[in-house]
């Protein structure tokens, strides 16, 4: 392994903190995202991980995939447990019993963030604990069998919002969690996707440097729940960004930066036709979604442009 000095391996650490042998589905985007996040975080961290796919596949007792201190928490209290760990470290440091700048990281899925763990997250962000909250968003409760969450996009068919003769699938719009995090006035908020690994790892590195709470929202493609072939994971993530459905941006204080900007967005059909969960959508529904995506994207672009002007 000494000749790892070419291209990619020169740019990232070859150390793995998320060991193989985990039971994630083949082609799991979330497992890839976790692997990249762990590479970027390094050794000096403590992770509190909510119940969900990543907890189930990585730690079926008595085995674990984690090579860093890791604790399993419930759906609802991930941010609270992370706050507690951070407070503990703070006290021990003050008493002189611990002198290691250990970063505390909370990880959860979209269900554990947008639905069940929402109030704990809001509380922790408001109290200003020095920790990173990472949401791995696969857009439904995939672990229990593809039930809708408030992060499921409009029109997606899940087992609790099935498409049929009358229903078009999910009838509500995706909850904009990064915007909610921004509204707390925290120092760092970012969105990322595993299809852009260097952007993702840069953002994690930035969040580690931040003093105070930071929130990172990572779109994680789920081949099983989105009903697409397992080798299309990376392509689907890339299309989500290129179509403007999941724009990649970061907010430092109130400064917006659009990390990946496209002169012209691809039509959202390109993204939808890959996936079985959108197969039933009619032309009218798609154009309705397209309009909304374009509006949201231009709003974001405007914000980013305003910052550049002020500079």
């Amino acid at each position: 392994m000494e000749s790892l000095a070419i291209y990619v391996p020169r740019l990232v650490t070859i150390k793995e903190y998320f060991a193989p042998g985990h039971r994630a589905c083949m082609g799991c985007g979330e497992a890839l995202a976790v692997r990249l996040v762990c590479k970027a975080l390094g050794r000096n961290i403590i992770i509190a991980n909510a119940t969900g796919c990543m907890e189930i596949v990585s730690s079926p007792l008595p085995s674990t995939s984690w090579e860093v201190p890791w604790i399993h928490t419930l759906f609802e209290n991930t941010a609270a447990v992370a706050s507690g760990i951070e407070a503990g470290i703070k006290i021990l440091t003050r008493k002189g019993k611990y002198n290691n700048k250990t970063k505390v990281v909370a990880m959860a899925g979209d269900g554990g963030t947008a639905d069940i763990g929402f109030q704990a997250l809001s509380g922790a962000l408001e109290r200003g604990h020095d920790f990173i909250y990472i949401c791995f968003d696969n857009e439904a409760y995939m672990n229990t069998g593809i039930q809708r969450s408030s992060s499921t996009p409009f029109g997606a068919s899940t087992t609790t919002s099935p498409a049929g003769k009358v229903s078009i699938g999910q009838t509500t719009w995706k909850k904009d969690l990064p915007a909610i995090a921004v509204a707390h006035g925290i120092p760092y908020v970012a969105t990322a996707c595993h299809s852009y690994p260097f952007d993702l790892m840069n953002k994690i590195n930035k969040a580690v440097e931040v003093n105070g709470p930071s929130y990172i929202h990572i779109l994680s493609v789920c081949p099983t729940g989105w009903r697409l072939a397992s080798d299309l994971t990376i392509r689907a993530g890339r299309l989500a960004v290129e179509t403007g459905i999941f724009p990649i941006y970061e907010v430092e204080g109130d400064r917006y930066t659009l990390n990946l900007d496209f002169p012209k967005l691809r039509p959202i059909e390109d993204y939808f036709k890959l996936q079985g969960r959108f197969r039933h959508l009619s032309k009218e529904t798609i154009s309705q979604i397209q309009e909304r995506v374009a509006a949201k994207y231009s709003k974001l672009k405007e914000r980013a442009a305003r910052n550049n002007y002020q500079q």
Binding site: Y7, A19, H22, M26, G29, L32
Partner: peptide, 20 residues
């Protein structure tokens, strides 16, 4: 030998042999 396969593997099971 660009290593993009290594980067995108969800298992982290791709490595380099001694020829690179």
């Amino acid at each position: 030998k660009c290593g993009i396969c290594y980067l995108f593997c969800p298992e982290g099971c791709i490595g380099q042999n001694k020829d690179g």
